[in-house]
């Protein structure tokens, strides 16, 4: 009994059994991290390198904490302060790190497919911590895990993902993960930020935020990724906020009480206002807590494979 894949490159590679195995394992780890002694010795002979070619706070800290809670040795590497800026290639950089006897690599990279590429050229197990606008599998897993924890199950639940779907790796991974678990998924945002063929993933599309919120059980609000936007996709941030920003007034005017999620970092006052982010309907800090447990589960299940 184990995962069907040797690396975690995307939700695309996981089947429903894999996801459920990760969740059941994460339940136990959530219990572990709430004990006075939050550490278990499972990965004491495993070394993990966290290689970040792109900025990150939550994901990097969450992975690092997960690794330490499992007693793994960790190496941290930020591309901005490394020889990458002197022209070293990705494979060379990683092979040099692996020469120091590293077993697993957690990597974030600005280019889609960087993890897949690396997994074909190096021996170590790869965990994708976000590759461009492609996938961010652990974020999707922790989002679905948080929904399961709050609502009991993901199957049959209605989830709307609001905002910059076009540039979001969180959106793609979330759609794949939620669909795999039997949820209904809708995306909502301005036409320019919704990919043309998104319907082929089996999701509904809605451009009216109020209609979308009235339909859903959970709203996942995404950040506008200005750093990935090469052209203007909407007239102004202010207009975007007026049409797609979630504030307390809209939330309170809905027929039912929905849950609000956000993968972070939040731009308070843009996609979500402070009173919503800090309200009791918000799962944002649960998501962060669950992130450590889910990442512990992923690392534990991958590292435990024979011949790993």
């Amino acid at each position: 009994m184990g995962l069907s894949t040797r690396h975690l490159l995307g939700i695309k590679d996981l089947n429903r059994n894999d996801i459920e195995l990760i969740f059941n394992t994460a339940d136990t780890f959530k219990d572990v991290i709430n004990r006075p002694i939050k550490k278990v010795p499972s990965l004491r002979d495993v070394t993990i390198a966290n290689i970040f070619f792109e900025n990150s706070t939550r994901t990097r800290l969450s992975f690092e904490l997960a690794e330490r809670r499992l007693s793994a040795d960790t190496l941290n590497f930020a591309a901005s302060s490394s020889s990458v800026s002197k022209g070293e290639t990705l494979i060379d950089t990683v092979n040099n790190i692996l020469a120091m006897k590293v077993d697993m690599v957690v990597m974030r990279h600005p280019y889609a497919g960087a993890g897949v590429f690396l997994s074909k050229h190096v021996k170590a197990q790869i965990v994708n911590a976000g590759d461009g606008a492609h996938e961010h599998p652990t974020q999707a897993l922790l989002d679905a895990f948080s929904i399961r924890e709050k609502l009991g199950d993901v199957e049959g639940k209605k989830i709307v993902i609001v905002g910059d779907i076009l540039h979001s790796r969180v959106a793609l991974s979330n759609i794949l993960c939620l669909k795999q678990l039997g949820a209904e998924v809708m995306v909502c945002g301005p036409t320019t930020l919704i990919p043309k063929y998104i319907g082929s993933l089996g999701v509904k599309v809605e451009h009216d935020l109020r209609k979308a919120l009235n339909w859903c059980d959970v709203a996942n609000m995404l950040r506008i990724q200005l750093e990935r936007q090469d052209i203007k996709y909407f007239p102004s941030l202010r207009e975007y906020t007026m049409l797609y920003g979630l504030d307390k007034q809209i939330l309170d005017s809905l027929d039912k009480e929905i849950l609000v999620m956000h993968p972070g970092p939040i731009n308070r006052g843009v996609e979500i206002t402070s009173d919503v982010a800090d309200s009791k309907q918000s799962l944002i800090l649960d998501q962060v807590e669950n992130g450590v447990a889910v990442r512990m589960a992923v690392l534990y299940l991958l590292a435990g494979q024979s011949g790993a």
């Binding site: 184990g2 195995l21 059941n24 394992t25 136990t28 990965l43 299940l301 590292a303 494979q305 790993a308």
Partner: peptide
């Protein structure tokens, strides 16, 4: 751990 076929699924404490 890492010396058998796959990881064991944990039970509740």
């Amino acid at each position: 751990f890492r010396r058998r076929e796959g990881p064991l699924v944990p039970n509740q404490t």
